[in-house]
Computed example of a mutant assay.
Amino acid sequence: MITFADELWIKAPPELLFALSLDVDAHTGSMAASGERAVAGVTTGRLGPGETVTWEARHFGVRIRMTSRISEYRESSFFVDEQLSGPFRRWRHEHRFTLDDGGTRMRDDVTFSAPLGPLGRIAELTVLRWYMPKLIRQRNLFLKQLAEG
C-alpha cells in the first residue's frame, strides 16, 4: 500500500477550490495528456455526495476504467472519493480545503494499493509511488491556474 500527500497554497477562496475539485470538466482538463474522460455516472458538471463517475484514460499505453464515488462530503471543506471498481485493489483520495492567509491551503491525502499481490507490490514500488503523486500535483497545479487566473 502506498500513501502520499500533496499540499498547495492557492490565492482563491476554499469554496471555489472545493467546487473546482468536484467539477468533472475541470478534472478532464487537468488530465488532458492521458485523454481522461467521464464515460458514465456524472459526466459533466459538479459531483455531489454519493454520486459516481466512471473515468476512462490511457496510462502507459493501456486503457483503464475507474469508477469512483464521493463517499464523504462536507461542503466547502472536505470530501473523499473512493474507487468502486477499476485498476486498484484500493483507492481512497481525501481532499481538504482550509482558509489560510487570504487564500486556501488545499491538501490531498491518497492511499492506494495495486492488485496482483507481489506483482502489484513491485508496480507500486517501481512506478506507481512516483507516477501517482505526479498526476495529483499536475491536477492541483491546473486547478491553481484556473482559480487564480
Rank of each mutant, 00 (worst) to 15 (best):
R96N: 10
T98G: 00
I70N: 01
H95A: 00
T67F: 11
F78I: 10
S68I: 13
F78G: 03
S68V: 13
T67R: 13
V80R: 00
R89Q: 12
R92M: 03
G102W: 08
F79K: 06
M106R: 04
R92H: 13
M66V: 15
S76D: 15
F79Q: 01
Y73S: 02
R96K: 04
T98A: 11
R69D: 06
R74D: 14
E75W: 04
S77N: 07
E82V: 06
F79T: 02
V80C: 07
E82H: 08
S85A: 14
E82P: 01
D101H: 11
F97V: 09
G86Y: 09
E72D: 13
S68F: 11
L84S: 09
D100E: 15
S85R: 13
S68K: 05
T67N: 05
E72V: 02
G86D: 08
Q83K: 07
S77R: 15
R96S: 12
R89D: 10
Y73A: 01
G86I: 07
R105Q: 12
R92Q: 11
S68L: 13
W91M: 08
D100N: 13
G102L: 05
Q83V: 09
F88Y: 15
G102M: 06
Y73L: 03
S85H: 09
L99N: 03
H95T: 00
I70S: 01
V80S: 00
D100G: 03
D100Q: 15
M66H: 03
Q83R: 02
T98C: 04
S85N: 10
G103W: 11
V80K: 01
R105F: 04
T98K: 07
L99G: 05
F88G: 01
T98H: 06
Q83H: 08
F79P: 00
S71A: 14
T98I: 14
M106C: 08
S77Y: 09
D81H: 12
G86F: 02
H95L: 00
E82C: 04
E75N: 08
D81G: 07
D100F: 14
D101K: 13
R90Q: 15
F97G: 00
R105L: 14
S76N: 15
E72T: 00
G103N: 06
G103R: 05
E72Y: 01
V80A: 04
H95M: 07
E72S: 13
Y73N: 02
D101S: 11
W91E: 02
S76A: 12
E75S: 13
R89I: 02
P87D: 01
L84G: 04
G103A: 08
L99W: 06
S85E: 15
T98S: 12
D81F: 14
P87F: 11
G86W: 01
R105S: 08
T67S: 10
H95I: 01
R69M: 12
T67W: 11
